[in-house]
């Protein structure tokens, strides 16, 4: 009980900073919501001009939303942790003895709030402006798959964030490496069966690919548990592996940082 409080309090405190600090920047709505929504709309316009089948609109909306969550892991967790180090906040945080995963969870929750607001805007635009069609019958499965996927993504985020501590500014390259190719492979704007089987199987190793496929099947194709159980099982196994792995990698890197003296070394 006490332990949970020690984990959650710092996380909520950090999320509060992210969310309410964010509101104080008046441009928040523009950067966080309007701009990404315009970008998504431009993709949909392109599809419409090519007379793509209507299901593609829903594909694009869900794909964009999922990728947003992934980018939130990369930039909102990894790069933010780097800045926490540069400003000396990390040093002070580590002094408190609070677990580092709490800080990362706080950043993630804070970022997730923004991303959720953006996602809702995208769904509304998708449905009311572009007439995207979703089948709400299997929404609970979609939500379950979504949460499992998020859990895996944020577990991976812990490992990436700690790499940012060691590689400093070079970590931004890491984000690019982990961003574009994954967006490509996960089928952000198209179903991945456009790829040859080999690439499809590589792509399926990523939780985001499986999560996205599952959510699309539930909400667009109206498939139920008879196909989605595969997604749910694989994602559960991934979560069980990735979470401890993320914590392990992070602890190892922090330990290594304390040994090498790079943990709080600035300007790297």
């Amino acid at each position: 009980m006490i332990k949970i409080v020690r984990i959650l309090r710092p996380a909520f405190a950090r999320a509060y900073v992210r969310i309410f600090g964010g509101f104080r920047e008046k441009s928040w709505l523009f950067w966080e919501v309007i701009l990404p929504t315009i970008f998504m709309s431009s993709i949909i316009f392109a599809y419409e001009n090519l007379n793509a089948p209507k299901v593609f609109i829903g594909f694009v909306v869900l794909g964009t939303i999922m990728m947003n969550f992934w980018y939130n892991v990369l930039w909102g967790m990894g790069s933010v942790l780097y800045w926490e180090k540069e400003t000396g906040n990390l040093e002070v945080y580590l002094l408190t003895g609070s677990p580092l995963p709490s800080l990362l969870l706080g950043m993630a929750l804070g970022g997730m709030f923004n991303t959720s607001v953006r996602s809702i805007a995208m769904i509304l635009i998708g449905v009311y402006v572009f007439q995207a069609e979703f089948i709400p019958a299997y929404l609970p499965y979609a939500i379950a798959i979504f949460l499992l996927t998020l859990f895996s993504l944020y577990s991976m985020g812990m490992a990436f964030a700690s790499l940012h501590l060691i590689y400093g500014r070079k970590g931004i390259r890491l984000n690019e490496v982990m961003g574009e190719p994954i967006s490509f492979l996960s089928g952000q704007y198209y179903p991945i069966n456009v790829f040859p089987t080999v690439i499809q199987s590589i792509a399926s190793l990523m939780p985001i690919t499986i999560g996205l496929d599952g959510i699309r099947r539930a909400l667009i194709l109206g498939e139920g548990l008879d196909t989605l159980w595969i997604h749910i099982s694989i994602l559960s196994i991934m979560a069980l592996i990735l979470f401890p792995l993320g914590i392990y990698i992070m602890n190892r890197i922090v330990e290594k940082g304390r040994r090498d003296g790079r943990l709080i070394l600035r300007w790297i």
Binding site: R9, A13, F20, G21, G88, V92, T96, S98
Partner: peptide, 30 residues
């Protein structure tokens, strides 16, 4: 223990002094 380093300014510029102290107090589990 605690450590205070001169010339450092840890915290979040966009929050007030009180909010920053509140943040760090909560990090300590208060």
């Amino acid at each position: 223990i605690n450590l205070v380093s001169g010339g450092e300014r840890p915290g979040y510029g966009i929050l007030t002094t009180e909010e920053n102290l509140m943040y760090y107090a909560q990090i300590y589990g208060l």
